[in-house]
């Protein structure tokens, strides 16, 4: 498992753009929002938690179709399937690798972008924590979607259609926690529920992902 994780990370670094593109997209979306809704700091600060979360979610979506597509093209996938590594472990590693290359950089960049939207001072900690808890779930759910669409030639758009509805609970709890934090309320409920979703996703989705991969390898 470690070997696969190391390889995927090395590939992401060497292929270039793996980290950069998602981050750049995140930045651009955040920059576009004030053009759309107007420059009033008050308004921006009120919608900042939601915008930051939605933008992070969309940025994480961008690279999903590459999770299995490259391994499918060059034939690595059947070779991994016949290796001692169970496909469930492959699915888990792919999700983790996607998080390290996408979710983690987005999480770390989010506070900086929070300044652009006048995020309330009290909300920064919550933004960081919810993204840290929530983005792994986004990656794992996305890995499941990628496994469903791996055999399709133009699966990218379909992948978004399949994955975005599955993102709803994570988004709701994440953005809600930041909003409560910004308003000075307790966000404990939302944080606990979001953590529960992430744990549940990592416990069960590797199996569903592996099942989908097996079907697609046939």
């Amino acid at each position: 498992m470690i070997a696969l994780l190391k390889r995927d990370l090395a590939l992401a670094v060497r292929a270039g753009g793996g980290f950069g593109l998602g981050l750049a997209f995140f930045l651009i979306v955040i920059v576009l929002v004030p053009f759309g809704v107007g420059p009033q700091s008050e308004l921006l600060s009120r919608i900042a938690p939601g915008i930051l979360w939605v933008a992070a979610l969309l940025a994480a979506l961008l690279s999903l179709d590459r999770i299995f597509a490259l391994d499918h093209e060059d034939g690595s996938l059947p070779l991994l399937a016949t290796s001692p590594l169970p496909l469930e472990a492959v699915a888990l590693v792919k999700g983790v690798a996607h998080w390290i290359t996408t979710g983690l950089p987005l999480t770390l960049a989010a506070p900086a972008l929070g300044f652009l939207l006048n995020l309330e001072t009290g909300a920064y900690a919550f933004l960081l924590i919810t993204l840290l808890i929530g983005t792994p779930a986004l990656s794992m759910i996305g890995t499941f979607g990628a496994a469903l669409t791996v055999g399709l030639r133009r699966g990218g758009l379909l992948l978004s259609l399949l994955v975005l509805p599955l993102y709803i609970p994570t988004l709701i709890f994440g953005a809600e926690a930041v909003r409560r934090g910004a308003d000075g309320f307790s966000a404990a409920n939302a944080l606990v529920l979001q953590g529960g979703i992430t744990l549940g996703v990592f416990a069960f989705l590797p199996f569903a992902t592996a099942a989908a991969l097996r079907v697609n390898l046939r």
Binding site: P165, L166, P169, I172, F173, L193, I197, A211, A212, V215
Partner: peptide, 19 residues
């Protein structure tokens, strides 16, 4: 497979939306 996973998330969404 999607229907099964989707069902779980549909129920989750239902309660998340209530929240």
């Amino acid at each position: 497979v999607l229907c099964i996973v989707g069902s779980v998330f549909a129920v989750l969404s239902r309660y998340a939306v209530n929240f």
